[in-house]
Design a protein around this nucleic acid. Sequence first.
DNA 1: CAGGATAAGTCCTCAAGAGGAGTTGACGAC
DNA 2: GTCGTCAACTCCTCTTGAGGACTTATCCTG
Lengths: 262, 262
Amino acid sequence: MATKYERIADALREEIRAGQLKPGTRLPAETALAEQYDTSVPTIRQATGVLVAEGLIEKQHGRGTFVRKAPTRVVRDNARHQWEKDRARASEAERLTTGATERDTGLTINDLVFEASYEQVPATAELAGMFGVPEGATLLQRTYRTRYREERTPLNRSQSYLVLDMIASNPDLLREDQEPWPGGTQNQLWTVGIELDRVVETFQARPPTPEEVEELGLPAGVSVIILRKVGIDTTDRVVEVADVVLPGDRTELTFTTKLTRW
Amino acid sequence: MATKYERIADALREEIRAGQLKPGTRLPAETALAEQYDTSVPTIRQATGVLVAEGLIEKQHGRGTFVRKAPTRVVRDNARHQWEKDRARASEAERLTTGATERDTGLTINDLVFEASYEQVPATAELAGMFGVPEGATLLQRTYRTRYREERTPLNRSQSYLVLDMIASNPDLLREDQEPWPGGTQNQLWTVGIELDRVVETFQARPPTPEEVEELGLPAGVSVIILRKVGIDTTDRVVEVADVVLPGDRTELTFTTKLTRW
DNA sequence: CAGGATAAGTCCTCAAGAGGAGTTGACGAC
DNA sequence: GTCGTCAACTCCTCTTGAGGACTTATCCTG
């Protein structure tokens, strides 16, 4: 015999699954639900709290409790690291299996706004260790935020680090006033004689910190994806490290691994 | 002015961050905290509930509330799709940037137990669409569970699908009694004339369903990573689809993308 | 007609308390 | 000494009640 609030949560969850409560619908008020299920308001709040944590409903202070819509997802693909010509090789099989979300959302890069800021910072012990430079060495830190046109909360926040000494031969890379990294990081690094060989991406999912909730405008119950991207050049040096914070409910990542046999 | 429970949550969070409350430590009892912060037990429970959702603490009925240890992470790397010889090419740069967790945990494949079961199921509309077969066509479904030796809850659950007709030429693939897929899926498919060309992996993070909480023994506040792996052969056919459910707090995924220039 | 005040409806905070259920260690019976 | 019982401690459930804060629509004022 489950507890009272669990039974209520189950009942509501079932109504949502069955489609009786459609996305966007407002649930009855807490007092109404309390009467309907013959219990008190705190017990109702406990039940709805479960569904919030599951990401099924969303509470809005003063407005009501609503069934959440499936959020718009943004697809990231590791093919973005490749040159354009290579991307064109994407075949029908890929489109069948991964293109669906992109088609559904109908979003293109033009619907997004990018913001960037540059700063010179000393290397932390962790970053210094990865780059193989002394702790405190000067790094160029670029902070990116991506948002939908006409939305305030960004879709992601990314901080990328380069060792200043490695890129000093091209002062344009340090100019704040120009479009950040036209042609992409790979091309930019090429202009200072660095040839990127491969990118290693590591990531995990965890609940957001309060700061991340604030910055990304996350509803309760969603997690963030933490992605660390490490760029390695043809001489096996770590030349770029980037930490990206992505909202878990709005992000879908795709990676293609080509298999080799020699 | 933040609310009372927020201030309490902030105070406890700060104690944890500062290391005054070390991982594994038991927090004072709810009644003691209520007295300490001059409030009621429900308010204390609300405050600690925030930290549970953030994954910082864990409540154990009858025992107490404990500061969570950083969970053991299992690293998945897309290099696992490659032949062994290729893996050996992993260089110092990779080890610097991604090998740390593997070294820290000290876990090898020998510490893990694999369970598998086979079943023949009709293709759902979604799977049929991906494979390009009629809906209801017979699929071979393999269900995997991975667990630590001497732990009951599995680390992950994976369901993999193959089209029966494609692999029918090797009846050994259907034998339940043998070690599942010796040599790996890539080698096994080779025995039926299928040459895997690439693997496309798509994933997202979301809160777990109650069933997943049950099956994977997830503490409150952690999310699951849903990974869909699609194997494509050299003739651009989708030959394998696998859905993997991973606990977000115990999993770290790594992908290496080799950049090309032609 | 525009703008602000108001009222109703909503979810949120906080309190105090009773009883229940899981865990642990101490104690006593055997 | 071993085992089971029991008491103490823990977190969990649920209740009742009061007031606060946010949102929206209505109504009144200018």
